[in-house]
Computed example of a mutant assay.
Amino acid sequence: MRSIKQVHKAEYRPIADLITYSPMPTASIQMIDPFLFLNHHGPQQYPPNNNGLPFGPHPHRGMETVTFILDGDIAHKDSGGHKSVIGSGGVQWMTAGSGLLHAEVSSEKFKKEGGDLEILQLWLNLPAKYKMTDPRYLGFQKDQIPTISLDDGRVTGQVVSGSLEETAGAFNTFTDINLATLNFEESAKITLNIPEDHNIFFYVIKGKFEVNGEQVKALHLAEFDNNGEELEIEAKAESVLLFGHAKPFEEPVVARGPFVMNTMEEIDEAYADFQTGKMGAWKE
Rank of each mutant, 00 (worst) to 15 (best):
S84P: 02
G257S: 07
N212Q: 08
T26G: 11
G115L: 09
F243R: 04
G153A: 08
K278H: 08
L126V: 11
S106Q: 09
P195R: 05
I200R: 03
K283W: 03
I145F: 01
G62Y: 00
G52W: 05
E166S: 13
K217M: 13
T26S: 14
N199C: 09
R256K: 13
E238N: 11
G157H: 00
G162H: 04
V253G: 03
R13C: 10
F243P: 00
L138H: 08
M24E: 04
Q141Y: 09
Y137L: 00
D71E: 14
H60T: 10
F174K: 14
M94S: 06
I32M: 07
H76Y: 10
E238Y: 02
S107T: 12
Q6A: 13
A180Q: 00
E223Q: 13
F55E: 05
H41T: 11
A128G: 10
L126N: 00
Q141V: 06
Y130T: 03
L231M: 12
I86S: 05
D143K: 15
S161M: 04
N227G: 11
A103I: 12
N199T: 12
E230F: 10
M24G: 02
Q215K: 15
G257W: 07
I194R: 02
G99H: 01
L242T: 03
I15L: 14
A270P: 00
A103E: 14
A170C: 10
F174E: 13
V260Y: 00
E265R: 11
P23H: 06
E238S: 10
F140C: 11
E223S: 12
P59W: 04
M94N: 04
P135S: 10
W123H: 03
V253W: 02
E269A: 13
T181A: 01
P258F: 05
E214R: 14
W282F: 12
L122D: 03
Q121D: 07
M1W: 10
G280V: 07
